[in-house]
C-alpha cells in the first residue's frame, strides 16, 4: 500500500513537471514576444510587409501570407492524395494489401524533414524551374513537399474515421443496389465527415509548423506571393533563419512571430479536437 502511494506521488510529479514545462514555455514565448507587438502596434506588426530589423521595421504580413499560401496549397495536395489513399486502402483494396500499405504510409512520418527538403531541392525545384518557369524555389515546391509530409497524418486519421463507421451502413447501402463507390461517397464519407475534417486540420497544423523542409524549397524572400511560382518566406522559416544573429528588438520580434504561430496552431488544434469529439457522438443508434 505504501509503495502504491509512493509510485502515485512520483507519477504525479512527472506528469506535473511535463505540464508545467509546457506552461512555462508558453509564458516565456508570450513574455518575450508580446511587448514588441504592443510597441509596434498590432496593426503595423500584422498588416505591414515591411520587415527590416536593422531599421526597426517589424511587419510580418508577407510571412503570414506566405505561411497561408503554402499551407492552403499543401492541404489541397495533402487532402486529395491523403483522403484518396484512405478511401482506396479502407474500401477498395484487399485487406491484406491495406495491412501492408498503411504502415508504409505511416512510416513516411518518420523520415526527417530535412530529407524531404533535400529531395525537394534536388528533384522538385529543378522540375518546376524547367517546366513551369520562375526560380523553382516557390509556393508550389513547398506545397508539394508539405503535401507529401502531411500524407501520413491525413491518411491514417481519415482511415480510422472511415473504419469507425458502422459496417451496417455499408451493408444497407449495398443491399439497396448501390455500387461500392456510391456507398463510399454517399454514405461512408458523410458518416465519417467530422473525423476527416479533424484529419485535415491536424495535417494543416503540421504544415503550418513545418520549418526545415520549407526553408530549403521556399526561396525565403520577403514578399507577398502573387502566384504559386513565386518564392515565399513562412513564419517558421523567419524564426529559424534569423534567430542565430538576432538580438534586442529583433529577437523580440522573432518571438512575436512565434506567438503568432502559436495562436494559429492552437486555434487549428482546438477546432480539430471539437470536431473529433462531435464526430464521436454521431453515428450511433439510440
Amino acid at each position: 500500500m505504501k509503495q502504491d502511494k509512493l509510485i502515485a506521488l512520483a507519477l504525479l510529479m512527472v506528469a506535473f513537471s511535463a505540464v508545467s514545462g509546457l506552461a512555462l514555455i508558453t509564458v516565456f514565448i508570450f513574455k518575450e514576444g508580446l511587448p514588441i507587438i504592443v510597441k509596434t502596434g498590432p496593426g503595423n506588426f500584422f498588416l505591414s510587409s515591411d520587415w527590416d530589423p536593422s531599421s526597426g521595421n517589424f511587419g510580418i504580413f508577407s510571412m503570414i501570407a506566405g505561411s497561408l499560401a503554402v499551407t492552403v496549397c499543401a492541404m489541397v495536395i495533402g487532402t486529395v492524395f491523403g483522403l484518396g489513399l484512405a478511401i482506396v486502402l479502407g474500401e477498395f483494396c484487399p485487406p491484406g494489401l491495406a495491412a501492408i500499405l498503411k504502415p508504409v504510409v505511416e512510416l513516411l512520418a518518420g523520415i526527417p524533414s530535412v530529407v524531404y527538403g533535400f529531395v525537394g531541392v534536388v528533384t522538385i525545384v529543378p522540375l518546376i524551374r524547367t517546366y513551369l518557369g520562375g526560380p523553382g524555389l516557390s509556393v508550389l515546391a513547398s506545397s508539394i513537399v508539405l503535401g507529401i509530409m502531411v500524407l501520413p497524418t491525413v491518411t491514417s486519421i481519415s482511415m480510422d474515421a472511415l473504419r469507425a463507421v458502422p459496417r451496417s451502413y455499408w451493408q444497407g447501402s449495398i443491399a439497396l443496389g448501390a455500387t461500392k463507390w456510391q456507398t463510399t461517397h454517399m454514405v461512408m464519407l458523410k458518416a465519417a465527415k467530422s473525423g476527416i475534417a479533424a484529419a485535415i486540420i491536424l495535417g494543416m497544423g503540421r504544415a503550418v509548423g513545418e520549418t526545415m523542409a520549407v526553408i530549403m524549397v521556399a526561396g525565403n524572400t520577403l514578399e507577398v506571393p502573387h502566384g504559386i511560382l513565386d518564392p515565399v518566406r513562412t513564419l517558421t522559416s523567419n524564426i529559424a533563419l534569423e534567430m542565430g544573429y538576432a538580438s534586442g528588438q529583433h529577437r523580440e520580434a522573432l518571438f512575436a512571430t512565434g506567438v503568432t504561430l502559436f495562436v494559429i496552431i492552437m486555434i487549428l488544434n482546438t477546432v480539430a479536437l471539437v470536431m473529433a469529439r462531435r464526430g464521436a457522438g454521431e453515428g450511433r443508434t439510440r
Binding site: P166, Y169, S173, G177, K190, T285
Partner: peptide, 16 residues
C-alpha cells in the same frame, strides 16, 4: 438488389 430488397436485424438508417 433493387428487385430484392433487404431489411436488417439492427435498424441501420444512414446518418442522413
Amino acid at each position: 438488389r433493387r428487385r430484392v430488397g433487404m431489411v436488417f436485424q439492427k435498424p441501420n438508417p444512414f446518418p442522413l
